[in-house]
Nucleic acid binder design. Structure first.
Lengths: 335, 335
DNA sequence: GCCGGACAGGAAAACGATTGATTGGGGAAC
DNA sequence: GTTCCCCAATCAATCGTTTTCCTGTCCGGC
């Protein structure tokens, strides 16, 4: 590859002039500019982003660490981040922690050593303190927490309105006559799932309903086991799963127990399945705006670059309650 | 951030010694090494990957351009690439062309200017010649084509055994009694879809079946329109969709036409839906090993780095035919 | 005719590492 | 005792840009 030196020589100017032409950072005589452009054309020169990043403060890249690249919701966030980043001329460096704190820490270190201009991260459930302090010490390089949102975080964050959405969902189901729920709440180290659980608890409390069954197992095999046991016991008329993997496990249990939805038991889930309209049963879903969350994270990052000292913001995007068959037509007292 | 210079000063050695300790690239006296390690510890020094990449030939990063980050199949490939790359200590730089040749070219240029050690790309349907020549002129920097595989490509490639899989699928359906198919073949600028179409054509020819209806529209609205028309005409007993988006459009048409699967018409699709076991109808699917394809692309890249002059390889991963309800229990002659 | 400012462009110092050439000291071999 | 080689460590060049000074020229105003 030709370098700026060769371009300069061919054009008969200094490298600084070439640089200024390239970046439009100083007036240059039209004739000089023309010579430079011609030389660039002739040599097929292209700027070297590495050298450029080396000299400047910025790399024009951002890092993204997701906790489970295999989950469709995270895939959508990645998509949203990529889209928003590209629109602003930023390149995306992607890493996946796969819910493993060791890999997460490694990923964060790698991205920071590559001098990304900012970092977006969906922290894994068992995220280590080392990562926390590493992220905090990175200021003023902006860090945005995605999806997994923490109280009193020193960072900007973007999450969903989990507590309120769960509340709305439960209220809807209650209005339809349900009194006894089974909540498959999942790993309570994950803030998102904690928020959903709290929304559930709030709604139950405010409606003066009796104690409900809650499954908070982490391991999916254990989830299935506990859900199966709860179904066996059999007083729930409605099951809510707090995430897609939990919904999968739960649906398997329902199927294995021979329970049909919504006739024998109602069902609803968070995050949902793709193309779910095409298949039966269609499932009542609280849908997370994953793409938009990714894009919003990029916006926060950019804003933060412009105002390093503003106090951290937490953005909560609205989820939408999509009512479908799995929670309809249930007749309390019939089953 | 501390630099290597400060570490060297603190340890009372030269920067080159620090570098050699860091990279384990030359023997250093244990006592010296200890001093260096202590200094690193004290300063909290971390290697700067940008400066490192600047000096060395490699950046320890690879670029990936996908043609539609929104598609689950591509999301899985991204996942596979990230996984394999991370396992080898490579960072992943991700870009999405969104099936837009302009964005694709921009993405390729960006990644190359960042000096990725190699590039994996799923070229978009209308990919420009400019991109082709740019990729070819990049040698010896390896380029691997992913999913969209071309004849006589100068690059390594990894795709699926589309032709054979389609053939097997059709043969299976034939054996079940089907004679008249509707193939929703999609955009014939996409090699993957061309291969699937050819497999279909081969199977039909070899079985001496009469001419079949093939929809090769690009725009989804047009696909729906043509599929609806073909269903109206009504002599097909079986529909095959060559990709997930096409399957979505087709299933919508079937639903709108009031046709149930498999009772009134059989259905099968390529690539498939996630968690499809949980919903009805379960769909007979030729499943693409998307994750593995991504991982294989990384392997080809690494191999190529070791042997720049070996002739290009095309890897075809096997797809699996997953038989499900949508193609079963069909009784030819009944409907 | 001199001064000051505007303007175009160049020289060279960074940025933070890696690495080839070089130095100096300490045996081993003769 | 000299030579030779090995070893550890340093020196300094280098990667390809950007950016800070700096120089020289031209022009207008007085």
């Amino acid at each position: 590859m030709a370098t700026i030196v060769e371009v300069a020589r061919l054009a008969g100017v200094s490298t600084s002039t070439v640089s200024h032409v390239l970046n439009d950072t100083r007036n240059v005589e039209p004739s000089t500019r023309a010579k430079v452009m011609a030389a660039i054309e002739k040599t097929g020169y292209r700027q070297d982003a590495v050298a450029r990043a080396m000299r400047r403060a910025r790399t024009d890249s951002i890092g993204l660490v997701v906790s489970d690249a295999g989950e469709p919701a995270f895939a959508e966030m990645v998509h949203g981040v990529e889209h928003a980043a590209a629109a602003r001329g930023l390149t995306l460096v992607l890493a996946n922690s796969a819910e493993d704190p060791v890999r997460e820490e490694r990923a964060v270190n790698t991205l920071l050593s590559r001098r990304v201009d900012g970092l977006i991260i969906a922290r894994c459930a068992a995220s280590s303190a080392a990562v926390s302090s590493r992220l905090e010490s990175e200021s003023p390089r902006p860090v945005v927490l995605l999806d997994r949102v923490f109280d009193n975080s020193p960072h900007d964050q973007v999450g969903a309105d989990n507590r309120e959405s769960m509340r709305r969902l439960v209220e809807h189901l209650q209005a339809a006559g349900h009194r006894r729920f089974l909540l498959v709440a999942g790993d309570q180290r994950v803030p998102t799932l904690v928020e959903r659980f709290r929304g559930f608890r709030d709604a139950i409390r405010d409606a003066d309903l009796p104690q409900q069954v809650v499954v908070d197992a982490v391991d999916m095999a254990e989830v299935r086991e506990k859900v199966a046991a709860a179904l066996e016991q059999g007083d729930a008329t409605c099951v809510i799963a707090s995430s897609t993997p939990l919904a999968v496990a739960t649906l398997e249990c329902l199927r294995d127990a021979g329970l049909t939805t919504p006739e024998q038991i109602a069902f609803a889930a968070f995050d949902g399945f793709s193309h779910s309209d095409l298949f039966r049963p269609t499932i009542t879903t609280v849908r997370q705006p994953a793409f938009e969350m990714g894009a919003a994270a990029v916006s926060l990052l950019i804003d933060r670059l412009g105002a390093p000292d503003a106090s951290p913001r937490t953005l909560r995007l609205n989820q939408t309650l999509e009512l479908r068959e799995s929670s309809e037509n249930y007749r309390p007292g019939v089953s």
